[in-house]
Design a protein around this nucleic acid. Sequence first.
DNA 1: GGCAATCTGTCAAACGTTTGCCATACTGCG
DNA 2: CGCAGTATGGCAAACGTTTGACAGATTGCC
Lengths: 363, 363
Amino acid sequence: MIKQLKSEAMQARGKAGERDDLRQGRAIATLEDVARAAGVHYSTVSRALDPNKVWRVNVVTRKHVQAVAQRMGYQRDMVASGLKRGRTHTIAVVVADLGNPFIAPVLRGIANRLEQAGFMSMISDTQDDSARLERILNHLLSRRVDAIILTAAHLGDGPVLRRISRQGTPVVLAVRNVPGIRLPACTDDDLLGGTLAARHLLALGHRRVAQLRGPADVYSFVERGAGFSKTVAAAGAVEVEVLSTGLTPTLDEGERLMRLLLDRKRVMPTAVFAHNDLMALGALAVMRERGLNCPKDFSVIGYNDSPQVDRVMPPLTTIRQPGEELGRTAAEMTVALLTSPDRPPASRSLAPTLVVRESTAPR
Amino acid sequence: MIKQLKSEAMQARGKAGERDDLRQGRAIATLEDVARAAGVHYSTVSRALDPNKVWRVNVVTRKHVQAVAQRMGYQRDMVASGLKRGRTHTIAVVVADLGNPFIAPVLRGIANRLEQAGFMSMISDTQDDSARLERILNHLLSRRVDAIILTAAHLGDGPVLRRISRQGTPVVLAVRNVPGIRLPACTDDDLLGGTLAARHLLALGHRRVAQLRGPADVYSFVERGAGFSKTVAAAGAVEVEVLSTGLTPTLDEGERLMRLLLDRKRVMPTAVFAHNDLMALGALAVMRERGLNCPKDFSVIGYNDSPQVDRVMPPLTTIRQPGEELGRTAAEMTVALLTSPDRPPASRSLAPTLVVRESTAPR
DNA sequence: GGCAATCTGTCAAACGTTTGCCATACTGCG
DNA sequence: CGCAGTATGGCAAACGTTTGACAGATTGCC
């Protein structure tokens, strides 16, 4: 009897519904619209459309509701849903510099993995500015993102990150770690990376080397520098100069530092370790401009193995960070954290590898 | 009398409030928490914190409420606000390929301008896939973004875009236009760009040229190709080959196309116009690999003037698109559209310029 | 046939803001 | 002093979804 009534209602409303969504033309259908069109209560529609709740609704009602919803192009309103559930299915990804080509594969790794898990990623760029980072983080909190993947951490960001985390938004560090912070992190082993760079140059016979360092308040660069210096010292070679930028390590900064290095009136190194590929490219540009040949006059080694550095002249020897994998793993950890918040995933450190090309040569 | 009571309440609640937010430690303060702490109704707090409504609340109450809110670290919940107001203050930026270095300045231009206007940008990457684009757009609709800036349009995307737009979310096109669509767009004049490229090569004396084209279903490439071909033909020179990629025009695609070109057993061109810098870089790489010299054997001209193409070997001659300005202008138009939706901003076309470097030489 | 158990759908109260409307208190004026 | 007008704050109904509680109907069982 009820079923009878229901199916009549279904038919009667079906057409009305159809007319409805045509009539409105612009507005987007709500649960209530679908419910009206399907002849059921809107809570039933909500359940019929929620995989975790479908068992509460009869299979024939469910099919019918789903069909109507489909036909009307219903899309759950994530804002309302987010308000009610406290979950927005959005994960923020904060990067230091979108202009660094190395970040693209990381982002791709993150986005693909997150999408697969039903999340959307929302990317912001801090331009390596901590004040901006804090603004962005507050904004994200108020947007109620489910989690934050941060690839732009500076050493001083600990307190802010702890606050965010304490306020209930999980934070996962990627690429750049912050020592001593109790946050899951997925990074490259930069100490090892620096070591590899040094070993390579030493193996080629270089005894006088220099560094073009990234900002001292980014742990990755601290580690790269430390690994490099320690290995060089242990071999009894000499580090003639260590130049640091305080800014985002871009190509321009690489040029500036390289000019500084060449302009010194002291003993010259025979090889240069740049803390990222962009700075290495800058160094190369300055050398070209001064008529110096790489690798004849200087060997140059970069870091990251960014896309395209294998195509420049000379193809760049570099330390490869597995960008996409770093991103994928960070996303993985984030999803794990959201699934079981009680037991946070262990931090992971991926091994970098040496990629020998033509910018380094025996001394 | 009332004032008396209120200020007592203020003091009494002040401490309670302070204890409150310390006690909870993790949760984030709501309007009601602040109201309780300040001894007023939460609607008053809402008004005291909304620049457009402050006039409704007495200056002393306002100051007090603002102080309490500040102290408690209150942040308006944008999700709830978005639900109620229908405005999320979030603008989605959809790009085709984050791996293309040209997009970074565009994004920077957009983000800076939007931030200045109080919006946040949310970036997604379609990987030049229309199906993915549609998924992303639907997602964004359900997230209720205030507007969408699309730099990833294909010719076939018209209907989808019209639907989105009809459903009430403004769409602004940037970088890539779609002819005949009634949507504001801010693009580069690609027809002129192609023309400039051709003129430059012709002026250098080249009479046999070839193109490495981007996908035929992206209007920018259609235009670049048309401008180039027309100019070449008008000068009586010959276009020996036009090779198209169907995929995202990356460095790899550039290499593939260049190999195809060199492997033909027919008359060789003396100059190549690549539809973007990435493909030009690919062409350069293949030439190097085959022992050919640029610009001696072939001149190569790219498009975009992406960051860093002035530093490769040889520095790339290219058509410069003003990336940051394109982004800034698109953002500008979007803000305008949101401010006065009735009268949409006129589309704008920015002029590209020729940047001569060393990858082109007289024949 | 009566009763418990199960199944299915409806009701209504949240989530945190915003905002039109109302009530009160205060101001100025005759 | 009475009254209109204004300033200020509270009330409560939304926004669209989710979900615990409930109710009516059906089933199974003795």
